[in-house]
Simulated assay, not measured.
Amino acid sequence: MPAPPPPPVPSPAPTTERRRAAYAAELALGTDRFHEPRREDCPWCGAHALRIRLTTPDLVQRKPGRFTLAECRACGHTFQNPRLTPEGLSFYHWDRRDRCDHWDAGATHGTRPAPAPSRRRLRDTARAMLPYGEPESWLDVGTGAADFPDAARALFPYTAFDGLDPTPRVVRARDAGRVEEAHIGRLTAPATAARLRARYDVVSLLHHLEHTPDPRAELRAALDALRPGGHLLLEVADPRSLSGALLGRWWLPHTQPHHLHLLPAANLRAELESQGCDVLSTDRHGPHTPHDLAAATSLFLTRALPSPDAPWRPVPPSGAEARTRRILTRAARPLLATARAADLALAPVARRTRFSNTYRLIARKDRGLQDY
């Protein structure tokens, strides 16, 4: 009797060299095509009163290209100008297949040069909603692995938490019991908006608006997902923080090319009020995240140390470069630890001054408004 045929061999994942060849072909066409035309007016208020806030390379992945943040002198809105096209956003998106030994990989997550928020911090954010009662349903937008709903459940045990994210991580979070329903997509997509319309008592957008191409459209979609009388919970990096002026390109919310907009609290408050919402709370102190110095140090080291191997490099690093990077990385760890300790020591002062880096805003949708 003939032996059974061997099982089919799965096709191998793309090797670094194959991906290097693919990146080389893309980069041969230049990076200018990844940018939209430069705007001469503010996308928030329309004023022709722009100034360049900073210009920077990609400090995290070190992909080729330079990026500019412009600031409107009239309203303070800060935005990427020229903005990345959808193809550009895809090119600069962090891809797990491209993973390499970025600085302090044990403390970074993707393109995040600072530790992910602790469970305690996430509970502090959820605690801000306690004065408004226990909601029946809550949607967390841009939830990722649903760390926030998982932490918030300790304070709201009878609330049904759902998650929305453009990646399949939210499905894995549902399978792990962190959310009840998992929605893959974007809040502004017509199909998603129709499916979620008027379903929730609370919608949270935590450090989400900075990444969206159109923050106004995102806010309208979030309000559409709320029931009349429901609450919107926002946490946003504060572009008026003195830390941003002091640290410049090394300030984490300035990180390019991933942050498309930085919105002053006054602008966001006025927009919500124009949509018929009551802004119940604006807190510039409690949400401060003590990571400015550690993140700036991490970004600086990522830029200063010899580059690790990555598919967008024309050639892999030499053995000497790799050894030098390993030695310098170990030597620099005490510096990063010192920066983290300084952040924690300075936090009580920073959160009570204009060095606070984040604000939290809670708004209530008017009970008489059904649609936007």
Rank of each mutant, 00 (worst) to 15 (best):
F91E: 04
G368C: 13
H207P: 04
S137L: 08
T143M: 07
A154G: 10
P311A: 00
E36T: 09
T111I: 12
T31S: 09
T324E: 14
A337P: 11
G319Q: 12
A237Q: 03
A322C: 08
F91T: 02
P64L: 05
L59K: 05
Y23P: 01
L361K: 02
P149T: 07
A322H: 12
R174S: 12
F300R: 12
V9K: 13
N357H: 09
T125K: 06
D101L: 05
L361G: 01
A294C: 11
R33A: 11
L242G: 05
P166K: 04
D95V: 11
A182T: 07
R112V: 15
P131H: 05
P311E: 01
L335T: 15
N267R: 00
D165L: 01
A24L: 03
V315Q: 12
L27N: 05
V60H: 04
R197W: 08
H35K: 10
Q80S: 07
L260Y: 00
C45G: 01
P82T: 04
H231P: 05
L252R: 09
D101Q: 14
R323A: 15
A47F: 01
F67S: 06
S318F: 09
E218R: 00
L260R: 04
P10H: 03
Q61H: 13
R323Q: 14
H285E: 15
P264L: 02
H254M: 05
T159I: 06
D366Q: 11
A107V: 12
F148V: 03
S318L: 12
L69T: 06
Y158A: 14
V171K: 11
R83P: 09
E17Y: 03
L299S: 07
T159H: 06
T85Q: 02
T302H: 12
A151W: 00
A332Q: 05
F300T: 11
E36A: 09
L164K: 05
R240Y: 14
R62K: 09
R340H: 12
F300G: 05
L50K: 02
A107P: 13
E181L: 13
L187R: 01
G142Y: 04
D101M: 08
R195G: 08
R120P: 10
H254V: 11
R119K: 10
R354W: 13
T255Q: 07
P190M: 09
T329Q: 12
R186K: 15
T31L: 03
P14T: 08
D175P: 10
D309H: 06
L219S: 00
A342H: 11
S298A: 14
T31D: 04
K63I: 10
A21T: 07
P57R: 01
W312L: 02
T56H: 09
R51G: 13
F148M: 11
F91Q: 03
T108E: 11
H288A: 05
A320M: 14
L328H: 13
L89E: 15
